[in-house]
Amino acid sequence: MAETAVAEKAAVKAEPLFGKKEKKLITDPLGDNNPITIQVLGICSALAVTSLVVPSLVMSVAVVFVCAFSSLFTSLIRTKIPKQVRMIVMLVIIATLVTVVELMLKYLNYPIYKQLSVYIGLIITNCIVMGRLEAFAMANKPWRSFLDGIGNGLGYGVILVAIAIIRELFGKGTLFAGSAVEMNIIGANNGIVEYWINTAAESGIGSWFSWYANNNLMVLPAAAMFIIGIMIWIQRSYRSHLVDIS
């Protein structure tokens, strides 16, 4: 441990704390190296949790946390990790962090823990975390790995929330349902949603779009697949250097 600490100190002196390269680590995953649209990692959870915005947001925050700190810890001990069992070591680190998140949620806010307990377990299986540890944290210094973790977590979160907004808006007619800032944007009329219609009519916005019938396809996981496909298509047609011609 002492060696890495010394090495780290030297690194901080030699490299700026937040230079051009460090900035790129954060911004790259948001655009040209997005974990979902370019690396095509973490698709499974992107399909599962994106039918509502609020769970997607909390999932994103949790993934940023786990991604950043597992990168940091893996990078700190990267020279000590035996190569034969590195995957197992990474899994231990990730699972530990996920358990910490779970315990802290139970301690601090039990209702949120109840709402998210299923998704929190899903983070362990999120291939973005493992992918970044293997591809970046094993070969880079702690600070940069930490930034890379944050960047990729954010890149994942941005896409997740974008998909969730589209799906919730057209599938349910609302945004942020189940939270304090719940909004009813477009009206719906499939029987069970009278509650949403009433509040929408009161707020005055919903009445303009009260003709809109909820699109049930949007609620199904298949919709997320279509939306991700369209996002990949749009991104690649604007950034032609991303297209792999070979």
Binding site: V49, S51, P55, K114, R167, V219
Partner: peptide, 9 residues
Amino acid sequence: DHKGETPGL
């Protein structure tokens, strides 16, 4: 309440 039903459904 539920343990793991699909959000939105």
